[in-house]
Design a protein around this nucleic acid. Sequence first.
DNA 1: GTTCTAGAAC
DNA 2: GTTCTAGAAC
Length: 386
Amino acid sequence: MLRWYKMVENMKCYLRCVRSSHDDVFLPDKVPVFIGRTKELQITDRTCSRNQLQLTANYSKRYVLVKRLGANLSHIDGMDIPRKQSCQLKSNQTLYVVEMKFPHDIVFIGSDNERDVKPKSETAGNEPEKLRTFDDTNESSKCLSINQSKRTLLQRKLSEKGECKKSRLETKEDKSNNDDASDSPYAFDSPATGSNVSLSMSSSRFAMKGHWSQGLKASMTDPKSIIFQDNLIVVIKDKYPKARIHWLVLPLEEIAHAGQLKPNHVDLLKHMLKVAKSLAKDSNKKKKYTFRYGYHAVASMSQLHMHVISQDFSSSSLKTKKHWNSFTTDYFVDAETYVIELRNNGKIEDRKAFTKFLKEPLRCHKCNASQKNMPTLKTHIEKCET
DNA sequence: GTTCTAGAAC
DNA sequence: GTTCTAGAAC
């Protein structure tokens, strides 16, 4: 225990520019630090907010929590950081400050990985520069030091050739990670025979072990979840079904959300619906269910997914008003609507405003009777004969 | 997305 | 007192 405290006490964390465009940025333990379009980071790109990201190092767990504040996308490896959401950044990952630009790594110095990333002289006789912190929204208050040290010559040469990340993969720690088949960059290649579509390699690590919103991508390759697959789509059981039958239909092509759909995806959407209806028909040979097929207006989980849900809503996973309203109000957009909209307009409209439907009062989806709370609603729908 | 929990509602 | 919800954390 004493050794652990000692290790954390002596540890330091830095944000390091892969291209060595600026000095390392010191990230103190559990103190939020803001980075973005600033002189310190040498970023002048207008797509980058001045406070694009909030970084909070966690020395004991050896990661940096990255929260995106800026309007434009930031990424860890190849994956989006949703706005106002926090994602863990580990020392084997690369943070792109905005729009896949300005790559940075993190290094923990004075820890076990010190052997892999050599500590660099921190003082070098230079005065520390200033950086805004959580408590410092004006220029005159609290300041933190920025490490003046530089990358090694070898790392600099590699980064200039765009090979720095590749070189890191050769370290002992990362080699061990690469030996783990479950973390293989190829884990998302479609197992379907003859499939020529797969999820990108750059997304694999974050998708498998990162933010909750990437969970569907892991489920897409989990044999226990899959109930159907062809060369275009996969159908999986929802991990937390909100009805007796609740499946998700996902394209194998990496399409994060409906906003990324292009006119040439019309046939894909039609195929998703056709397969869903066919599977539902098969299931009705055993027991008769009524189904709906559709999309949430604003999906929480990354990777486009169509819900196939029986209308009994009999499930212990159906717990909240948000759950209910997401399937029984206009927040649930019929699959046919997307097909027609994409065919007519060439894109799917932004439906962020539809989140208002999640706050609507609880009502039975059959008889429209108002319900006081979720337990009352669930009792009612079990008996409602309408 | 789920889980946890403080505080509102009963 | 218990039940339920909504927001934070993950």
